[in-house]
Design a protein around this nucleic acid. Structure first.
Length: 937
RNA sequence: GCUUGUGUGGCGGAAUUGGUAGACGCACUGGACUCAAAAUCCAGCGAUAGCAAUAUCAUGUGGGUUCGAGUCCCACCACAAGCACCA
């Protein structure tokens, strides 16, 4: 009987005592492998079952690579600054460092219990002054290069609490805690210039071996767009403003402009009559949180400034409005509005009754040569009472259509539509609802044997009464007038023009798709992309605009009014200048205080008067009392692991050059745009400064999935009965069983529910392996029957570990164990190979079995087993024989058989004969080693 | 709404460049061992019909390409994550 408790303890002590996993970081004779976990925040509740999943994956890789002859760096540390420790300090008055250290102890014990092969000599903590000395050092370099800036920027400010709040701390314009009003206000803040790195952060993604989904999230976050800046003059003044647009091709359709309420020009151009309204609106906008403003469900709001802009391409005067749907933080904080082709502008124009000019029409049908041009209408009449639409049904001669017709000379589309409705259906008591976008339609008319290209205006009417005149039909107009439901129309109206028009009738929205330009002078007839190119040339030629690239990525606000973070090494001098703490005075250590609460709206560090007030060369100054955000220390920790005790530089350059980048980085997907983006930015920056040898820190990134409760719901406070504590499992089933189970559950990246039956099964498998050795099934003689499955197992496990497909690697090991039981014996050679491939997964068990096999040294650095490719393939293969693609029989033959022989064998099978008798064999498809398919008629 | 994923037995999940769907495990059923139970070992196990051989159906839905589709293409549905007035 396998005593996992005793055995696991025994080997953990052995590894500790012998420093088995200590990495000689200066040994450059072997190739390096750097396997890294996202380090945890040491919370008060200890590890949860999600942690061991990712940690086991990297541990398996680290252990396999050691056996494959790599020098492996596999470190662990602590992301130790954070809110829970801060709250602990506030409520108890104790220093948060003590609390953090205690938590770290618990975490470390739990990690050791799980048998991870970390080199604890490399342990770091971001809250350790010897660590954050270098976080501060990097901050100084960022400041010197203008990446870290102390600038005025809009923030959520709560007067009552006297603090800046993040968007998620603001609900309905009030503070989450206390319910005090929150306003948007410009404040001096520390920030990082993320946009400066946008292009590189975007481009480098292409060559990173990262999950595509995470790359996509980062691309979206960076949000690159191509467009143009266009300058509009303000009518009757010498003022002008610039808008950014990705659709400069629609410039002829711009019917108004909108400035963000905070745009500096607003107060300069607002006319006297509109001043009150504009000022009120600005105040209102300021009192809204970012969250409220970006709530899409709400109606558009805005006010007219009284001023007009001149559209630079046609000199038309168009009104200038202000609205909070234009954000001052993006591009120029000003837009030209093209309601016909932009949904947001469309909604705004509808609400405030601003003109809508269509400049692009959709194209239906295929263009032909020698088409005749016409102007036409498509009229849709809606009967609200019966919820039906008026159609004419040509049956086999053309199907169901709406009323259509050609516009006569001197007739407007509306007049034409009314006339056609009367003539074709007789209905005369109708009312126009709205005019729909015009469509450019190509078609062939059978009755005239001619190709037409028409500009068709859609018109939506509603029926006011059933009043009807007599139809006036031509002789060839043999159709039925029918009222049809929406469902019938969607099914039966096949004509592209009519169905498209119906779509516009159902959805009152802007036309944002491609098409050809109309009402646009020199752009007429061009498609979207050609028109954009032509317009940009035009704008540049006439010096009224030019092409421009914009990014959505914003400044990273780099300050928090909290105690438990890295002090910003900056002194604000009385004379208004900013002085940096000298490098030799770093680290700037957090002072111990009596009270960790912020008072009177100030940061907690403001209480530390002695620490805060300094005098330099006779000039008084105050230290920055904000601290750095959580993501500061984690943005470069992967470098410090390489040389954690260095007090001269953040890490030895030669060592960094050898060890970076990280070969495998495993962690949760929730850090996609936080930590993973900031780390890349810092690494980019440090690369520029000659500190980092690489631009990108993480070569390969993998996200482990979430382990859900047995109820398939995220483990947490809501269902405490489904929360699984890894330490409990280690006690009841053992660390190896937990490691094995978490790797067997399914693909690493997938979310998977925990199963108590599953963990039992994993323990049984471990016992089943142990029994082979315990019952002395291991023999010195060899066993040919196991040869193939052994080589297959070594091959599959090696390959699957490499690609992190642990679940299938384990299933192959189970197949091997099943085969051993069937044979009743296991040759020693195979036993050793098997224990070796098992060892990364279940290291305690493997060490024990290795000892039982007569070795007195750790298995950690034994060489990885090899396999013989020739012994992996089967000599005899079972080939499926299909008839018309359905498997009817199988033949068992030598793998080297010729194609002809295989076909002969297949055809001679009794079962196959049954299917082919009296049938004509059309052809036979034979894929050697795979399949024979006989096609019969 | 947009982007990216994912849909396979009672359950977790396998399935190479398109080539025998359901590996492996759980649960379940039967057998061996036992006075008995547990543990262990062995065997069976998608659905429907049949004693069986076997046949038909089956990878979210509907089409398509192909000798052959879980896999490729088109449309749709459901779920998850991320983004969300970015002009």
């Amino acid at each position: 009987m396998y005593n996992f408790r005793k055995t696991e303890k025994k080997w953990q002590d052995y590894w500790d005592k012998n420093q088995t996993f200590k990495t000689d970081i200066r040994d450059f004779t072997k190739p390096k492998y750097y396997a890294l976990d996202m380090f945890p925040y040491p919370s008060g509740v200890g590890l949860h079952v999600g942690h061991p999943e990712g940690y086991t994956a990297t541990d398996i890789m680290a252990r396999m690579k050691r056996m494959q002859g790599y020098n492996v760096l596999h470190p662990m540390g602590w992301d130790a600054f954070g809110l829970p420790a801060e709250q602990y300090a506030v409520t108890t008055g104790n220093h948060p460092g003590t609390f953090t250290e205690e938590n770290i102890k618990v975490f470390k014990t739990q990690l050791k219990e799980l048998g991870f092969s970390y080199d604890w000599d490399k342990e770091i903590s971001t809250a350790d002054p010897s660590y954050y000395k270098w976080t501060q050092w990097i901050f100084k370099r960022l400041y010197e290069d203008g990446v870290a800036k102390y600038i005025d920027m809009p923030v959520n400010w709560c007067e009552e609490l006297g603090t800046v709040l993040s968007n998620d701390e603001v609900i309905d314009g009030k503070s989450e805690r206390g319910g005090y009003p929150v306003v948007r206000k410009n404040m001096k803040q520390w920030s990082m210039d993320m946009p400066r790195f946008a292009e590189r952060l975007l481009n480098n993604l292409d060559y990173l071996d990262w999950p595509e989904s995470t790359k996509e999230i980062q691309r979206n976050w960076i949000g690159k767009s191509y467009g143009a800046n266009v300058t509009f003059k303000v009518a009757d003044t010498d003022k002008e403003f610039t808008v950014y647009t990705t659709r400069c091709d629609t410039l002829f359709g711009a019917t108004y402009c909108v400035l963000a309420p905070e745009h500096p020009l607003v107060m300069e151009i607002t006319t006297k009559d509109n001043l009150d309204e504009v000022q009120n609106y600005i105040k209102l906008a300021a009192s809204k949180s970012e969250l409220e403003r970006t709530n899409l469900d709400k109606d558009k709001t805005g006010v007219f400034t009284g001023a007009y802009a001149i559209n630079p391409v046609n000199d038309k005067k168009i009104p200038i409005w202000i609205s909070d749907y234009v954000l001052v933080t993006y591009a120029n904080g000003a837009i030209m509005a093209v309601p016909a082709h932009d949904q947001r502008d469309f909604e705004f124009a509808k609400k405030f009754d601003l003109p809508i000019i269509q400049v692009l029409e959709e194209v239906t049908g295929a263009p032909r040569e020698n088409e005749e041009k016409k102007n036409s209408i498509v009229a849709i009449v809606y009967d609200e009472q019966n919820d039906k639409y008026l159609t004419i049904n040509w049956h086999k001669k053309g199907g169901r259509l709406f009323i259509g017709g050609t516009i006569k000379d001197g007739e407007s589309p509306l007049e034409c539509a009314i006339r056609e409705i009367k003539e074709e259906t007789g209905y005369d008591d109708i009312e126009l609802v709205r005019i729909l976008p015009r469509i450019n339609h190509h078609y062939y008319a059978y009755n005239k044997d001619k190709y037409f290209n028409i500009d068709a205006t859609g018109l939506l009417f509603k029926l006011k009464s059933n009043s009807k005149l007599k139809q006036k039909l031509d002789e060839d107009e043999a159709f039925a007038v029918e009222w049809a439901s929406k469902k019938v129309i969607l099914e039966e109206v096949k004509d592209a023009l009519h169905s498209k028009t119906f779509e516009y009738a159902l959805n009152d929205m802007a036309m944002e798709s491609d098409g050809i330009h109309i009402n646009s002078e020199f752009l007429n007839g061009l498609n979207k992309q050609d028109a954009i190119n032509k317009m940009i040339s035009y704008l540049e030629e006439h010096k009224i605009g030019k092409s421009k690239v914009n990014y959505k990525i914003r400044e990273w606000i780099f300050a928090r009014q909290r105690y438990w973070g890295e002090p910003v090494p900056v002194i604000h001098m009385e004379d208004g200048t900013i002085k940096l703490v000298a490098d030799e005075d770093l680290p700037l250590v957090l002072p111990v205080m009596d009270d960790y609460r912020g008072k009177h709206g100030k940061a907690p560090l403001d209480n530390a008067k002695e620490w805060k007030n300094v005098t330099i060369d006779g000039v008084k100054g105050e230290r920055e009392t904000s601290t750095m955000p959580g993501a500061a220390g984690s943005s470069w920790y992967y470098m410090r692991y390489i040389d954690p005790h260095n007090d001269k530089v953040l890490a030895d350059k030669e060592l960094l050059k050898h060890w970076l980048p990280v070969d495998l980085y495993v962690g949760g997907p929730e850090h996609a745009v936080g930590h993973l983006l900031y780390s890349r930015m810092w690494c980019n920056f440090l690369y520029d400064k000659g500190v980092s040898p690489v631009e990108e820190p993480f070569k390969k990134l993998v996200h482990q999935g979430m382990i859900l409760g047995e109820n398939n719901i995220k483990m947490g406070k809501r269902y405490p009965e489904f929360v699984v504590n890894p330490s409990d499992i280690v006690k009841s089933h053992g660390a190896d069983a937990l490691r094995l189970y978490e790797m067997f559950m399914g693909p690493l990246e997938a979310d998977k529910p925990w199963s108590n039956a599953g963990i039992d099964a994993s323990k049984k498998f471990i016992d089943r392996i142990y029994r082979i050795f315990e019952e002395e099934k291991v023999t010195d003689s060899d066993n040919k029957n196991l040869e193939k499955v052994y080589h297959q197992t070594i091959k599959k496990v090696t390959e699957d570990y490499e690609t992190l497909n642990f679940n299938t690697a384990i299933s192959q090991m189970m197949i091997f164990v099943n085969a051993v039981y069937k044979e009743g014996s296991l040759p020693k050679e195979y036993a050793e190979g098997f224990v070796k491939v098992l060892s990364p997964l279940c290291p305690h068990l493997a060490e024990e079995l290795w000892e039982m096999l007569g070795h007195n040294n750790t298995i950690t650095y034994e060489s990885w087993p090899t396999y013989d490719e020739s012994k992996v393939v089967e000599d005899n293969v079972v080939i499926a024989v299909q008839v018309n693609g359905k498997v009817r029989d199988t033949v068992n033959i030598s793998k080297d058989i010729s194609k002809e022989e295989l076909e002969k064998m297949a055809l001679s099978s009794d079962i196959i004969k049954k299917w082919t008798t009296d049938k004509e064999i059309v052809k036979i498809i034979t894929i050697p080693g795979k399949i024979v398919n006989i096609v019969i008629k």
